[in-house]
Amino acid sequence: MSEAELQQKATTADSAAKPTVSIERELTQAQANLIEINGLNKWYGQFHVLRDIDLNVRKGEKIVICGPSGSGKSTLIRCINCLEEHQQGSIVVDGTRLTNDLKNIETIRREVGMVFQQFNLFPHLTILENCTLAPIWVRKQSRKDAEKLAMEYLERVRIPDQALKYPGQLSGGQQQRVAIARSLCMNPEVMLFDEPTSALDPEMIKEVLDVMIELAQEGMTMICVTHEMGFARTVADRVIFMDEGQIIEQAPPEEFFNNPRSERTQKFLGQVLNH
């Protein structure tokens, strides 16, 4: 199957819930950038967290961002769906520019799914209700449709049997898979992962990574902040190394891991991989 075919297959799931998009537009989008970040700067008071970030993400591309803690990786992806405000530069997601216009922020958040380090499931709702909340109240789907979709995604992350339990009754790995399913229920164009495996026990990391790898193989556009270098090698189209709020280096995984150009990247990889 060619890459274009893969992407089309991934978008057919979307078109069921959205007004039909002409094939022409889909094709141009496949080549165009889904996310365009230009000259992004952000400060926390005096502290300069993000310095002149330029980053374009094509539709279907998988990007892994790594770097030492405090380098601004999480802040960068949290800027994309406006969980953090930026002070300078522009972010355009799927043709919508992120401005102070609340309408634009809403549009972007509908198209951008996010998975958090701490899962952030809603503890007062069942797993199924967690997955149907946004489709019902944001997408205005009927409960029946929303539940059907939710069960499909819960099956894909392999926990349909837990649907009627509450988050507190599930293990960390199961909770994180529910969080992924919950995001997917909104049929996002792109998924952001903010250290999705960092809060998990070692034996649960694999079950979450497996789900993420499957998702990548189905053609989802993904930006992952993670320290799982094995995952980066298998899945990423591009690995980005950040330090002190800057993008130091970006390259395909092969090149990134075998011939890192900058000294800082070499040092970082030396610390991460020598275990």
């Binding site: 769906n81 809403e106 958040r109 799914g113 809603f122 909340l133 995001s183």
Partner: peptide, 15 residues
């Protein structure tokens, strides 16, 4: 209520 709850709701597009 943890801050993450609001962030999760916001990232799902809830107003």
């Amino acid at each position: 209520v943890q801050k993450g709850q609001k962030e999760a709701a916001a990232s799902l597009g809830l107003k």
